[in-house]
Nucleic acid binder design. Structure first.
Lengths: 229, 229
DNA sequence: CGCGGCCGTCACCGGATTGTAACAGCCACC
DNA sequence: GGTGGCTGTTACAATCCGGTGACGGCCGCG
């Protein structure tokens, strides 16, 4: 089962080189030479990953990235951005415009392939469906949609439950409000990021003592802190 | 993918020798014979590194360096300075803006190529979006937003953390206050550059012993000093 | 239709954070 | 050894940020 990789670049030479290297590495490359084609290709072909040049004619890479993220059909596909300058990386990664990794030009195809492997492995691992999350006296049963604190069943609303689940799955790593809005609420409606605070408050209130796992990282976001179960 | 190296010298002989050696080492050399051409070449060609003679007709090397550093398009490109006398080197590295390394004339091309390799490796390492930075007893975990010094968790504010992260990522290269303001605080904020000093102090205070990695370069800015992890 | 639960938004507050000024100490250079 | 500029240090006020309480809209349900 070969993974499809969509490569988006306006330079035919770059496409050819990358295509060859990707085949060599056991992937099935598909191509797009501008932003519009990239979007339709992503929707139709459902590639496992997208390599996206930042500099594109008409629609630039960041815009493409945003559009891909907005569409539920393509929102989950990881994106590696190609940037000409390291200085642009802040915009790509920092501003949370949705790229998962980036490589600065000029790059070695070998390095890019390595990044692709790594990112695909990461996504696969993150998808790993663990039904039962346990941390000390906090138990989260995903299929049953039930939370137990010290054996007591706690009734959470859908939003609260998803918020807790996502934080618990990504335990240890800080999640920004934007990230949480994207993953808990979905990207459809532009929602005030302060709303996250309110739901955190309600969540903390309900789970009582177990709220100690939910840390606030001032100026950044929230973090679930617990030893591995 | 070959890295472009811009060589700036007013002696054609030197250009020829260096060009040959650089090709031999697998780089793509491009040339400029005076300061003005060097600046336009740097902007247009985006070389991965610049080798810059200090003694140039009209605009001298230091001036060129300053101009390059001032332009966001070229500010990130590392510069190796060629100086006739060792005595000038302290001005190059210490007092004046921005060279990342220097070689005294007469030099062996082999040595210069070695320096180039080393500097490029350093810059590339700084670009890596690795999550975990480790230097001796200092550990920086970006996704966790956590810093450990000798195993002890240190609580940093968002600004302090970003400042430390950026310095650590660009380890070995001096960062001017202006650059730090741009990259830590963002481009649009009109902030007094002395503010950086205060945050550096707070940072040093908090990380205690690990503050030895944070060097002050008088008249220029700050530098994170550590061997590659 | 009324009701209650859920959700998003707002306003306010207290405290942490941060930018700045002022001053002191140090360093390089003369 | 003096001097001027640069950096470290301290203190303080302004600002920012997140917690909290309250409110109104929406929706499903009886």
């Amino acid at each position: 089962m070969k993974s499809k990789i969509l490569v988006v670049d306006d330079e035919p030479d770059a496409l050819e080189v990358l295509g060859f290297k990707l085949k060599e590495a056991g992937y099935t490359p598909i191509f797009a030479k501008d932003g519009a084609r990239a979007i339709t290709a992503a929707r139709d072909e459902r590639p496992a990953l997208i390599v996206l040049d930042l500099m594109l004619p008409e629609i630039d890479g960041l815009e493409v990235c945003k559009i891909l993220r907005h569409d539920p059909a393509t929102a989950m596909i990881p994106v590696i951005m190609l940037t000409a300058r390291a200085a642009e990386m802040d915009r790509v990664l920092g501003l949370e415009l949705g790229a998962d990794d980036y490589v600065t030009k000029p790059f070695s195809p070998r390095e890019l392939v390595l990044r692709i492997k790594k990112l695909l492995a990461r996504v696969k691992a993150a998808d790993e469906p663990v039904a039962q999350l346990r941390f000390g006296d906090l138990e989260i049963d995903v299929p049953r949609h039930q939370v137990l604190v010290a054996g007591e069943s706690i009734v959470l609303t859908a939003t609260e439950f998803k918020l807790l689940e996502i934080l618990a799955r990504r335990r240890g790593r800080v999640q920004t409000r934007e990230r949480l809005l994207q993953d808990v609420w979905g990207y459809e409606n532009p929602i005030d990021s302060r709303t996250v605070d309110t739901h955190m408050r309600r969540l903390r209130e309900k789970i009582g003592g177990a709220a100690r796992y939910l840390e606030t990282i001032r100026g950044v976001g929230y973090r679930f802190t617990a030893d591995a179960p």
